Amino acid sequence: MYQISQDFKQLYPDVARKLFENWTTVSERILPYAQREGKLHSVLGDMTPSAKEETALKVLPTLLPPSIYRRGGKVFRPTTEKAQRSFIDMQPVSFALVFLL
């Protein structure tokens, strides 16, 4: 969530604090909507609050149709799956390397 907050702050410095402050409330609205739309198949009651916030972030690209864009003279419309993969680049948690001197 930190990197998203950092990017948002760079793009919208005047309102950046509101994204992080309101994300819990926003995510609580996104998840039921995603379930109604058939885009979320998880059981929300079994999730921790932080897992709910992360899930809401991951489901956003499935709720919004991918935008059409042009590259050169060609027009592209990415699939929902591709939009979801590129929306947030999820990286596995890595372990700290310890160097002995």
Results as ranks from 00 to 15, higher is better:
53 E>S: 07
98 V>Y: 05
78 P>S: 03
42 S>L: 13
66 P>G: 02
30 I>F: 01
17 R>I: 00
66 P>K: 02
92 P>V: 05
28 E>H: 03
88 I>R: 07
1 M>Q: 08
90 M>V: 14
92 P>T: 08
36 R>M: 12
68 I>N: 09
28 E>C: 00
49 P>S: 04
1 M>N: 07
70 R>H: 08
39 K>S: 03
61 P>Q: 03
72 G>P: 00
30 I>C: 05
99 F>K: 11
37 E>D: 10
25 T>H: 13
22 N>V: 01
60 L>V: 03
23 W>K: 03
60 L>A: 02
57 L>T: 10
29 R>Q: 09
85 R>I: 04
28 E>S: 01
86 S>G: 09
39 K>I: 14
64 L>F: 15
96 A>F: 12
70 R>Y: 13
5 S>F: 03
42 S>A: 11
3 Q>Y: 14
87 F>A: 05
93 V>R: 13
74 K>Q: 07
72 G>I: 04
34 A>K: 00
55 T>S: 12
1 M>H: 11
40 L>S: 06
65 P>S: 03
16 A>S: 04
18 K>I: 06
61 P>D: 03
46 D>W: 15
98 V>S: 07
20 F>H: 13
21 E>S: 14
46 D>S: 15
98 V>G: 10
2 Y>K: 07
28 E>A: 05
57 L>E: 04
96 A>Y: 13
36 R>C: 07
37 E>V: 01
14 D>K: 08
38 G>W: 03
31 L>Q: 04
64 L>D: 08
11 L>W: 07
8 F>W: 02
87 F>I: 02
46 D>L: 13
98 V>M: 10
55 T>Q: 07
17 R>Q: 08
100 L>S: 08
12 Y>I: 02
19 L>P: 05
67 S>C: 10
67 S>M: 15
36 R>F: 08
59 V>K: 05
47 M>A: 04
68 I>D: 14
11 L>K: 15
37 E>L: 08
22 N>H: 04
75 V>W: 00
49 P>V: 04
18 K>C: 08
50 S>V: 12
39 K>N: 06
84 Q>F: 03
10 Q>Y: 12
96 A>E: 15
85 R>G: 05
77 R>N: 10
97 L>W: 14
61 P>V: 01
78 P>C: 06
95 F>D: 11
24 T>Q: 09
51 A>H: 13
68 I>Q: 15
100 L>I: 10
47 M>S: 03
36 R>E: 14
60 L>T: 02
81 E>A: 12
97 L>C: 07
31 L>K: 00
42 S>N: 11
54 E>Y: 12
100 L>D: 13
67 S>Q: 15
18 K>E: 11
97 L>R: 15
7 D>N: 09
35 Q>S: 14
57 L>P: 03
11 L>D: 00
23 W>D: 01
53 E>W: 05
101 L>M: 11
70 R>S: 10
39 K>M: 10
45 G>L: 04
84 Q>P: 02
41 H>F: 08
46 D>F: 14
87 F>M: 04
92 P>K: 02
29 R>A: 12
64 L>W: 11
46 D>K: 13
66 P>D: 00
34 A>R: 02
55 T>V: 07
53 E>R: 09
94 S>K: 14
6 Q>S: 04
